[in-house]
C-alpha cells in the first residue's frame, strides 16, 4: 500500500443547509489502495460529506480534490473515475442480471467487446453464470449486494464510494462482501465506506469518526482503541458519540 499518494484531499470542507451546519470544517486525506472507514451516528454528517465527494451535492466552501480532480470544476472527470453503491439497493429489479450489466456498461461508455469479457468474468466469479437471464428481483439480498458492488466496479474506477453497503445483510454475507472489498483494495482501488457496524470498522485501514458535523477522531482502528483505552471500536465510538448534540 502506498501511504504517500493521496487520492482524496479535503481541506476545510463546510456544508450548510440554511442555518444548520452539516459539515463543519472537515480536513482529511485518503490514500491510494486504502480502505477508509467513515463512521458516525445518523445525522452526524457522513452521508452529506460522501455525497459532496461523489458530486451529488456541492460544498458551501472548502478545497476538495477527488482522484486528483477538482470537485468544483472537474466533475465530469471525477464521475468517470469513481464507482458508487448506496445503502438503497441500486440495481433495476425488473431487468435481468445481464441487462443490468449491459445498462451500466452502456452509461459508462464501455465498448461492447470489453463489456462482454467483463460480464463473463464477473458472472464466473459470482457463480451466477446460469442465472444471467433471471430478473434481479428473484435473487436473494446478499447476492444482489455482491452483484451491485461488482457492477459498481465494472468501469474500473480508481475510487469506490460505498454508502452503508451491508445494511440488512446477514453476518456471513457481510463477511463475504468484505472479502470482495479487500480484493478490490488489493488491486489498488481506494475504498471509501460508511458503515453502522462497528465490527466492520475493524476491517478498515483507517477510520474517521464524525460527531456533530466534525471529525472527532481519525486513525487506524488499533491506534484509536489504544487512545480511548477501549477493547473494541464500539467502545471508542460510544465514548465519542456520547457527547453528540445531533446524534440519536
Amino acid at each position: 500500500m502506498n501511504q504517500n499518494t493521496p487520492v482524496i484531499t479535503v481541506k476545510n470542507l463546510v456544508k450548510k443547509f440554511g442555518s444548520f451546519t452539516a459539515n463543519d470544517h472537515l480536513n482529511f486525506e485518503v490514500y491510494k489502495g486504502e480502505i477508509f472507514g467513515f463512521l458516525g451516528a445518523n445525522g452526524a454528517g457522513k452521508t452529506t460529506a460522501m455525497r459532496i465527494l461523489c458530486g451529488l451535492s456541492s460544498p458551501t466552501s472548502g478545497e476538495l480534490t477527488v482522484g486528483g480532480f477538482d470537485v468544483y470544476r472537474q466533475t465530469e472527470q471525477i464521475k468517470r473515475n469513481i464507482g458508487y453503491m448506496s445503502q438503497k439497493f441500486s440495481l433495476y429489479e425488473d431487468l435481468t442480471i445481464a441487462e443490468n450489466i449491459r445498462f451500466y456498461g452502456g452509461i459508462y461508455g464501455i465498448p461492447v467487446k470489453q463489456r462482454k469479457e467483463k460480464e463473463h468474468l464477473l458472472l464466473k466469479k459470482l457463480q451466477l453464470e446460469s442465472e444471467r437471464n433471471k430478473l434481479i428481483a428473484s435473487l436473494p439480498l446478499g447476492w444482489k449486494q455482491k452483484l451491485a458492488f461488482s457492477i459498481a466496479l465494472l468501469h474500473d474506477p480508481k475510487i469506490v464510494f460505498l454508502d452503508e453497503p451491508t445494511g440488512g445483510v446477514d453476518p456471513i454475507t457481510r463477511r463475504q462482501f468484505w472479502d470482495f472489498i479487500y480484493e478490490a483494495a488489493a488491486e489498488g482501488k481506494t475504498i471509501f465506506v460508511t458503515t453502522h457496524y462497528m465490527d466492520e470498522a475493524e476491517y478498515c485501514d483507517r477510520v474517521s469518526i464524525m460527531v456533530d458535523g466534525r471529525i472527532a477522531a481519525l486513525d487506524t482502528p488499533d491506534a484509536l482503541k489504544k487512545q480511548f483505552n477501549s477493547e473494541d471500536m464500539n467502545g471508542v465510538f460510544l465514548q465519542l458519540a456520547r457527547h453528540a448534540r445531533n446524534g440519536d
Partner: peptide, 13 residues
C-alpha cells in the same frame, strides 16, 4: 425512490 437516480447522477450521464 429506489435510489437508482443517485447511481445515474454519479455516472457520466
Amino acid at each position: 425512490e429506489l435510489g437508482t437516480m443517485e447511481i445515474l447522477l454519479v455516472s457520466p450521464l
